[in-house]
Simulated assay, not measured.
Amino acid sequence: MKKFLLLFLLVFGTQFVQAQDLVWHTNVKEAIKISEKQKKPLMLFFTGSDWCGWCIRLQKEVLKTPEFQKWAQNNVVLVELDFPRRTPQALEIKQQNNELQQAFGIKGFPTVHFAKASTKDGKVNFVGLGSSGYLSGGPTVWLANADEIIKSKKS
Rank of each mutant, 00 (worst) to 15 (best):
K39Y: 06
K40T: 07
K40F: 04
P41M: 07
M43D: 07
M43V: 01
M43K: 04
L44D: 08
L44P: 12
F45K: 11
F45P: 02
F46I: 11
F46D: 00
F46V: 09
G48P: 02
D50Q: 03
D50C: 09
W51V: 07
W51G: 07
W51H: 11
G53W: 09
G53V: 13
C55H: 05
C55N: 10
I56Y: 01
I56P: 04
R57I: 12
R57F: 06
L58W: 02
Q59L: 09
Q59N: 15
K60R: 15
K60H: 13
K60M: 13
K60C: 10
V62D: 09
V62M: 03
L63F: 11
L63A: 02
L63S: 06
K64S: 15
K64N: 15
T65A: 08
T65Q: 11
E67G: 10
F68I: 11
K70L: 13
N74T: 13
N74K: 14
N75A: 11
N75W: 04
L81T: 12
L81K: 04
L81W: 00
L81P: 10
D82Y: 08
D82R: 02
D82I: 09
F83Y: 04
F83V: 09
P84I: 11
P84Q: 10
R85I: 09
R86C: 07
R86S: 10
P88F: 05
Q89D: 02
Q89Y: 10
Q89K: 08
A90N: 06
A90E: 07
L91D: 09
L91Y: 01
E92L: 08
E92H: 01
I93Y: 11
K94V: 07
K94Y: 08
Q95T: 03
Q96N: 05
Q96A: 05
N97S: 10
N97F: 05
N97I: 06
E99G: 06
L100V: 04
L100D: 00
L100H: 00
Q101F: 12
Q102S: 15
F104V: 04
G105C: 12
I106A: 06
I106V: 15
I106E: 09
F109Y: 14
F109A: 06
P110G: 02
P110W: 08
T111W: 11
T111A: 11
T111G: 09
V112N: 12
V112R: 00
H113C: 03
F114M: 08
F114G: 02
A115K: 03
A115D: 07
K116D: 13
A117H: 01
A117C: 00
A117V: 02
S118F: 13
S118C: 03
S118D: 13
S118R: 15
T119W: 00
T119F: 12
K120S: 15
D121K: 15
G122N: 13
G122Q: 08
K123W: 11
N125I: 15
N125V: 15
N125S: 14
N125T: 15
F126H: 00
V127M: 12
V127L: 14
L129G: 09
L129A: 11
S131Y: 14
S131C: 05
S132Y: 08
G133A: 09
G133F: 00
G133E: 06
L135E: 10
L135Q: 06
S136I: 07
G138L: 03
T140C: 06
T140I: 07
T140W: 04
V141W: 04
W142T: 05
L143G: 06
